[in-house]
Write a protein that binds this DNA or RNA. Structure first.
Length: 750
RNA sequence: GGGGAAUUAGCUCAGCGGUUUAGAGCACUCGGUUUACAUCCGAGGGGUCAUAGGUUCAAAUCCUAUAUUCCCCACCA
């Protein structure tokens, strides 16, 4: 043995050994109990970050532990197509080449991204392997594998048949920059200074930062308790507007804050989420005045076609001319919605979108998803996270599942262009020029085939009829160009990876045992998996949920590129080894709370790996010296033999037994750090500091050395799920009575 | 604005059902070439457990306020 534990040399050898052994391929064995974890799929074109390392470390720990305890342990690996993330990464690459997505038709673009992802996929797969993750590669799944896609489409079809799918106008967060909608979760707010205009509407005055949206006003609103305006409620106000004489109804809604501005709100249902809801409450018309191209729409009269900001300037001028501007507060600062990636402005627009009813009177999706956690049929660790889940699910509203991007699973709905001439189509004609317009008009000049081939996107008004079909419909049908929200497909991940509904794997391994992931996607992902699991199988897809904390940078701040504090786990793997990194992160993660990257602990566990390496080296040296080189040369541990042990020997046996119990107990409770810490303390400070020193000084070492070997072998088993490489490497050096590799060994019993 | 979490040694954190002198790793001090390990060994210093009240025979631990920090959700036109 080398005088030091050389992780670089050993890791690859050991990984190869496990691969040859085939220990991680889970067999369906009726005599065994299944233990299943589905790996939350990392982004297929991304690379490993510290969060992934922690996730792998915890899941591998659970899986190896249960496998050694005799379960049929299955850990299913996979990668995610990560719709929006990947498409934007790819578009950045395109930009470097002076191209953009608008240069390609939809099918070509999709194929290009497919190729891009498949060129990069091997990287993350290799990293998962290098981490020592004992996943079953024979069951590897990519979210866009044909079978995975088929399952997702089947689910959509079923939901559509059962009336859970609908199309509706909806206020979406729309980015002109990216040309797509963003979910609320992908939208943040940024403080910005904008002039606040006080605009007269007849006798009333309204304060707004968006005068241009006045073209879409369909009411004025006041607080029902506001004495100043009581007399105007339910009356119509007439006034001279920039477009000529106008009149608006005054409604009462408690959303209006009497203390803000003048206490009068202009209601623009098409361009503000809250106004949209007021509109629904009061049955107001929705007048769309801003189009997806960032310009004022056709129904804006003389302002039509102007960019939003141009229209604002113009309208202010016109209002000034009318004498309708009461005052301007130039110092007004307010939060504006921006997209979380580029912090570019987000406009709220009304677009037809695809929705899932989550609280249908006949078939509620959210209620059982709530109950199952409330009733502790699915347990969340740490417990205090439960409240987040319950609160969110309780307030869940219908789910907009469509995204205006190419990279994803295309919604399998088809529009008959002859029956729906108003479908708006954008395509590249045979010369590569972009053409857009209504299908009815375009079909007069272009053939269906040309449109279909060059199709970039379509936008079907909500009245359009559609047919759901997984097969290509052909002329005169065009397929919806929206794709599913990533969470719609990854929400079915446990079902997809286990080949729901008819496979043997599904019957044996479903529901899975534990879902382990970061808490930040509890709402977006975990709730959806529970919903789909119950909807399709009647059973939640997992029994326990363990949520690990976020890893912050060393400075205690969130890792971010702009702060330059992002930690690349590979640097630490190279310097300290996989085992040290895994164990260091696990020991930092205690209660599922966020924690700072535990640099010192990683160093500490690197030293520990070296320590147990040298303990073994020393033990073997003592054996060799006394010529106990074969297994049989030393006495085996037995309860009988233990009766004649010395105090020191009895002490170490007692310590080992209590350690085994402690490790099991802590792992049952997901207290990984405590379990690991206990092994560390025992091996270093009981075995090395005390017991080895004791053996060292004995005249006759036979019995004590035999016991040392016994204790060491058992400790290696306990430590293996935490630090798989170094323990396996040491295991191979010690003479044993069983040939099996450590990864394939049985868990010790106290 | 609503909700959650944290505040314990210089640093990062444990202390999960109230129990003897409050623990660990790193850092620090002193001393060590001892059949492996200096990524080591031995000894040691260092904490009024954020603050103020309360419950109790007994509180870092339970309760209530306050302060500070972090996070999530919402986002007043």
């Amino acid at each position: 043995m080398d005088p030091k534990f050389e992780h670089k040399k050993i890791e690859a050898l050991i990984a190869e050994r496990w691969k040859t052994g085939g220990y991680f391929k889970a067999e369906r064995d009726a005599k065994k109990e299944p233990f299943t974890i589905v790996l939350p799929p990392p982004n297929a074109s991304g690379r490993m970050h510290t969060g992934n390392v922690l996730m792998v470390a915890i899941e591998d720990l659970l899986i190896r532990w249960k496998r050694m305890k005799g379960y049929s342990a299955l850990w299913v690996p996979g990668t995610d197509h990560a719709g929006f993330e990947t498409q934007t990464t790819f578009e950045r690459e395109l930009k470097k080449k002076g191209k953009s997505r608008f240069d390609y038709d939809r099918d070509t673009l999709y194929q290009m991204i497919w190729d891009f992802v498949h060129e990069n996929k091997a990287l993350i797969e290799g990293q998962i392997q290098a981490m020592g993750a004992s996943v079953d590669w024979s069951r590897y799944t990519f979210t866009l594998d044909p079978e995975a896609v088929a399952t997702v489409l089947d689910t959509f079809e079923k939901m559509e048949k059962e009336g859970l799918v609908y199309r509706s106008d909806y206020v979406v967060n729309y980015s002109f920059k990216w040309g797509t909608t963003f979910s609320d979760a992908e939208t943040t707010f940024k403080e910005r200074k904008d002039p606040l205009y006080y605009i007269k509407y007849g006798p009333l005055t309204v304060a707004t930062v968006r005068p241009e949206t006045k073209l879409g006003d369909t009411a004025l609103a006041v607080n029902p308790n506001d004495k100043r305006y009581k007399k105007y409620i339910d009356t119509e106000i007439e006034f001279e507007d920039v477009t000529g004489p106008n009149k608006l109804k005054v409604i009462a809604d408690s959303y209006v804050d009497p203390k803000f501005g003048t206490g009068v709100l202009k209601v623009t249902p098409a361009h503000d989420k809250n106004d949209f809801e007021i509109g629904i409450r009061h049955g107001l018309a929705v007048k769309n005045v801003i189009s997806t191209n960032g310009r004022m729409s056709d129904n804006c009269g003389k302002y039509a076609g102007l960019k939003v900001l141009e229209a604002r300037t113009k309208i202010i001028e016109d209002l000034e001319a009318l004498g309708s501007i009461e005052k301007i507060d130039a110092e007004y600062s307010h939060p504006v919605p921006v997209d979380y990636r580029s912090e570019d402005y987000i406009e709220q627009l009304v677009l037809p979108n695809w929705f899932i009813k989550v609280d249908d009177s006949k078939k509620s999706l959210k209620k059982p998803a709530y109950d199952v956690v409330k009733d502790k049929k699915v347990k969340i660790y740490p417990k205090w996270r439960e409240a987040t889940y319950l609160r969110w699910v309780e307030n869940m509203h219908d789910w907009a599942i469509s995204r205006q991007i190419v990279w994803g699973i295309r919604i399998p709905a088809w529009y008959n262009l002859e029956e729906n001439p108003t479908v708006h189509v954008v395509f590249l004609d045979s010369s590569g020029k972009a053409v857009s317009g209504n299908a009815g008009d375009l079909l007069k000049t272009y053939s269906y085939e040309e449109i279909e081939k060059g199709l970039q996107s379509l936008n079907a008004p909500k009245e359009c009829k559609y047919i759901v079909s997984k097969k290509k419909m052909g002329k005169p049908y065009l397929q919806e160009t929206d794709t599913f929200d990533t969470w719609f497909s990854s929400g079915q991940w446990p079902l997809v990876t286990l080949h729901y509904p008819n496979s043997e794997d599904f019957k044996y391994f479903y529901p899975t045992s534990v879902l382990e992931t970061g808490w930040e996607i509890v709402t977006r992902w975990v709730s959806r998996m529970i919903m789909f699991g119950i909807y399709l199988t009647g059973e939640a897809p997992f029994k326990d949920i363990y949520l690990h904390g976020h890893i912050r940078a060393i400075d205690g701040k969130k890792m971010s590129k702009s702060l330059g504090n992002v930690i690349n786990p590979e640097d630490y793997i190279a310097e300290y080894g996989v085992d040290a990194l895994r164990m260091g992160l696990i020991s930092g993660t205690a209660n599922g709370r966020d924690f700072n990257f535990p640099k010192d602990k990683i160093l500490g566990y690197r030293n520990f790996a070296n320590k147990i390496w040298n303990m073994t080296r020393f033990m073997l040296m003592m054996m060799e010296k006394e010529d106990f080189t074969k297994y049989e040369d030393l006495p085996e541990y037995s309860k009988d033999a233990a009766k004649t042990y010395s105090e020191e020997e009895k002490e170490i046996v007692k310590g080992l037994n209590s350690l085994i119990k402690q490790v099991d107990k802590n792992l049952e409770k997901y207290r990984f750090a405590d379990a690991g810490e206990a092994i560390y303390q025992f091996m270093w400070h009981e075995i090395a500091d005390k017991y080895i020193e004791y053996v060292k000084n004995l005249e006759d070492k036979r019995v004590a050395l035999g016991l040392l070997r016994h204790v060491m072998l058992n400790c290696l088993k306990l430590l293996h799920p935490f630090m798989p490489f170094v323990t396996e490497a040491i295991w191979q050096e010690i003479p044993r009575n069983v040939a099996r590799d450590l990864a394939d060994s049985d868990w010790p019993e106290a």
